[in-house]
Design a protein around this nucleic acid. Structure first.
Lengths: 369, 369
DNA sequence: TTGTATGCGTTATCAG
DNA sequence: CTGATAACGCATACAA
């Protein structure tokens, strides 16, 4: 059945919504009886229940979530703060978040910091003013001062940090094993014969940066390769501006001891690096090898020898949301912080080596507050 | 100032929110006076206003949006239905939508159909049950029956379709000039000397498919190239499953008259086609040329000779949301449907030709209901 | 200029 | 088993 023109005639004329009162009136019952019947309360007779249910069906009754929210003092929505949604990792994570949210009837309000501390604070204020029931956060790159989160936490707002978490602070958190991912990617480059391995990485403010660099350094050290500070380049805005990446790579590639491989520590940096090398006509891996964190399916296609660390973004979103909802719906006080660590997936695409995939098992642990 | 452990001690103990009543009590005023003062009503004396404002500030009063929604019978949120958010075009469009929404204090509830008609219907029900004030829709590929939209439209819910719109039905809509984009991309392939130009395209259910195919055919015809049906391959799920793309391309490439160029009509199809060709080791443009719709920055890097039609996704999101809010907030009846058409941007990257960019001016028109 | 009463839709408490 | 009442937080019509 297709639209007919007539159906679009009344463009702006709202019908009155059916309420409990309407059902009550129609059946000559009280609103409270109807309410109880709809909620399948034990104190209502079977016949009355059936009557009410039938009538609700007939009138197409839809409960008003706003009224329910007001009464219950819970909005049924959670806020999400990420840097960018137009980013494979985060859009996949949001998919995971929403998949859980829909199942449980929550709705998700997404906001983007665009890596700006100021925006993050504004968004947080906005979300708080929408009376959200909980918060999922991945920090912006500029964020150093956490008092805006502290404030909401003190007010009792349940929150879970994921991916980019605050350092050394006891909070609920969901992360991937960044150290391991970085270690293995670096190791893979070493195994392929590269020695002068540089890294293009994010702001040192971010937890993920330091963990990934630690993994990188550990792999080098373990394999007897000296760590060189000149090979470690930070992009404060994580490559949001391509110029950052250009500058960093220009510097790296003009070093007297030019690196023969680069390890990039994020989706954006990996893409950016590919873009740079492609633009300059630098071949991978003939001129320089590349391994990096990436959740973009297409990025890997750029070169068949690109080793990729893929984060289980969807799973992270699911885990973070599930945890948040457990906290929100918990009756008793939460006495410990959960710390969920997922394993990254290493995809080795160098044709000289077999493809290896690390399985993606969860490792859940917690420590007391 | 950094977190101190103590701040995270009370993990689940909500403070009471400050309400108008609290301010009233503190100042020995009535709630209505406070309410009016906060809304800067003319009937309140300057001194009282100042007192109230100061007190609100001191107590950190935040109005409760749920109570306001209940009273005003408007939720302040709009629903968005798209097929996928992990897709450059849609994530950019959502960015545009949110940029307007935040400015005006709306919040955006995003839902994904994953190209399933059933999911679209479920999501729509869910959104309706959240009492949204308006709806932005881009149809799923499976959608043929529009009665679920018709139903909400008849109830007076403001809605705007964007990108994938219902055919031949008067509604508010925001699109890009698909015909033009397809025409120019095809023409570019012809100019580069290709004659056997195939197209990999979406479901014929979608408006965008037919418009793009029309542009493709028109360009061929204008340049005296015969249109061949065997060169037109539909992917019903738009490449959601890679298998679809593989099948279609396998068939195309095994034709006796193997095509020498492919025109892909969507982001996903362009990426998928690149993936296929890369996997098979087929070189672009040495073995086969490629031009396609794409909003993924990185896709273009895959090959420097890839001509791309980029849609102004961010602008579309902005335009659609702005239009929707005009409708929602309009006092009088809307008597005509807006029809906003944006221009696509053609990026020619074949090194044998100069880069040309078609400017991105808007062309707004409407027709009476 | 300020206060009182009422209602938005729902449900919990208390009566009957 | 069912009904009346109050309350969630806010904003208006109506009184004073």
């Amino acid at each position: 059945m297709l639209f007919i023109d007539a159906s679009f005639r009344h463009v702006h004329m709202k019908f009155e919504a059916v309420t409990i009162k309407d059902i009550a009136k129609a059946l000559s019952l009280s609103a409270s009886t109807v309410s109880r019947a709809l909620r399948d309360s034990y104190e209502i007779s079977a016949e009355t229940k059936q009557m009410v249910l039938d009538c609700a069906e007939k009138l197409n009754y839809q409960p008003n979530p706003i009224a329910k929210s007001l009464r219950d003092r819970r909005s049924g929505s959670v806020g999400v703060v990420v840097c960018e949604i137009a980013n494979s990792f985060f859009s996949q994570a949001i998919n995971g978040i929403e998949s859980i949210a829909y199942d449980r009837g929550y709705n998700v309000i997404i906001s983007q910091s665009h890596e700006s501390y100021e925006r993050e604070v504004i968004n947080l204020k906005y979300l708080a003013s929408r009376s959200i029931d909980g918060l999922l956060i991945s920090l912006s790159t500029e964020t150093n001062d956490l008092s805006h989160f502290e404030y909401l936490n003190n007010k009792g707002l349940p929150m879970v940090f994921f991916d980019r978490i605050p350092d050394n602070i006891p909070t609920h958190r969901v992360t991937v094993d960044n150290y391991k991912g970085a270690y293995e990617a670096t190791e893979q480059l070493i195994r392929s014969g590269y020695k002068r391995i540089a890294t293009l990485t994010n702001s040192a403010y971010l937890s993920i940066t330091n963990e990934r660099i630690a993994g990188y350094k550990a792999a080098l050290t373990y394999h007897g390769v000296a760590v060189q500070d000149q090979y470690i380049k930070h992009c404060f805005y994580g490559g949001m501006k391509f110029l950052e990446i250009e500058d960093a790579l220009n510097k790296l590639l003009s070093l007297p001891q030019r690196p023969d491989a680069i390890f990039t520590t994020s989706d954006k940096l990996t893409s950016g690096c590919l873009k740079y090398l492609t633009k300059k006509g630098i071949r991978i891996p003939a001129d320089i090898a590349l391994a990096g964190f990436s959740n973009s399916e297409i990025a890997e296609l750029l070169n068949p020898s690109l080793t990729v660390i893929r984060q289980p973004a969807f799973e992270m979103g699911k885990a973070a949301m599930a945890l948040l909802m457990t906290i929100i719906e918990s009756k008793h006080k939460i006495t410990r912080f959960e710390n969920i660590v997922l394993a990254p997936e290493l995809i080795i695409r160098d044709s000289s080596r077999p493809k290896r995939i690390i399985d993606n098992t969860e490792n859940i642990s917690g420590f007391p507050v």
